[in-house]
Design a protein around this nucleic acid. Structure first.
Lengths: 140, 140
DNA sequence: GCTCGGTAGGTGCACCGTACACTTATCTGC
DNA sequence: GCAGATAAGTGTACGGTGCACCTACCGAGC
């Protein structure tokens, strides 16, 4: 038996949506991982895997998109606060462009999907299934 | 040197966009692979890898989403024509729902991005960078 | 009759993002 | 001193995707 086949749709979110989202949020205001974790969750995508989030942040730091500084809060453990670097801003712009295209694509997709549904509700001619045309009468 | 780091955005298309798109197109009208290859390309996503497309079709057939029949055309090699099966229709609906959410998410993302850009053009107060407050005078 | 290019379908493979499970450390309140 | 919230990570396997490459059929042209 195949392990997985075609499972439930489970999202259909853009690829790399995590990086893109993190760049946006950090671009709005510097923040630390745990904070971003909650912000991301409230942004429409519930429950994000913390591991993936922290990993994404470190990769982006390694690549010079964001910078981090440790902040020793009086309450709770120390936190890493991330800020957007110039390269990160460039990337944010690039991502926004790509996502705008993706957004347009989804609009097309959904309108064509709606057209199919519409067509099913108002068949153009000869509804082969039921209600044959002509006056009702005893079956010949 | 790391092999890949954070490369160019390269799309940001939804995950599984290929299956979703194929289901939609086959739902509109039965078609064969090569045909779908061109339709998909014209749908906004240029140049799709044929291998992946054919593979996706076979997986979906294996999972009972689509059915196929060989058609021996008089001109050119035989072609496999795919039609949507009931399970495929269910999936199409599910995908459309997921993609609609994704579409909404992208709307939010883009409007927040635009807000950032806007904010950069019209800083709310005290543009920390230049133009210090106080009467202008000769540089000390 | 042989090659060339378009049509049609397919495999092998490696990369990388993601999801899931699990761990560590600090501080507050009971 | 233990539980639970805050905060940051690691290990790992899965699966979609992209790239490169291969087979087969058919008509046109040399």
């Amino acid at each position: 038996m195949p392990t997985h086949t075609t499972d439930e749709p489970q999202g259909g979110l853009p690829r790399n949506y995590l990086r893109a989202t993190l760049l946006l949020l950090i671009g709005e205001a510097p923040a630390h991982g745990y904070d971003l974790l909650e912000q991301v969750a409230q942004l429409g995508l519930g429950k994000v895997d913390p591991g993936g989030l922290y990993r994404a942040l470190r990769v982006m730091e390694r690549d010079g998109l964001v910078g981090s500084t440790w902040e020793h809060s009086s309450a709770g453990p120390a936190r890493r606060t991330y800020t957007l670097l110039p390269d990160g801003t460039d990337w944010l712009h690039a991502w926004a462009g790509a996502l705008r295209e993706s957004h347009r694509y989804l609009s097309i997709y959904l309108s064509r999907y709606d057209a199919i549904i519409e067509r099913q509700n108002h068949p153009p001619v000869a509804p082969v299934e039921n209600v044959p045309p002509g006056p009702p009468g005893p079956t010949p």
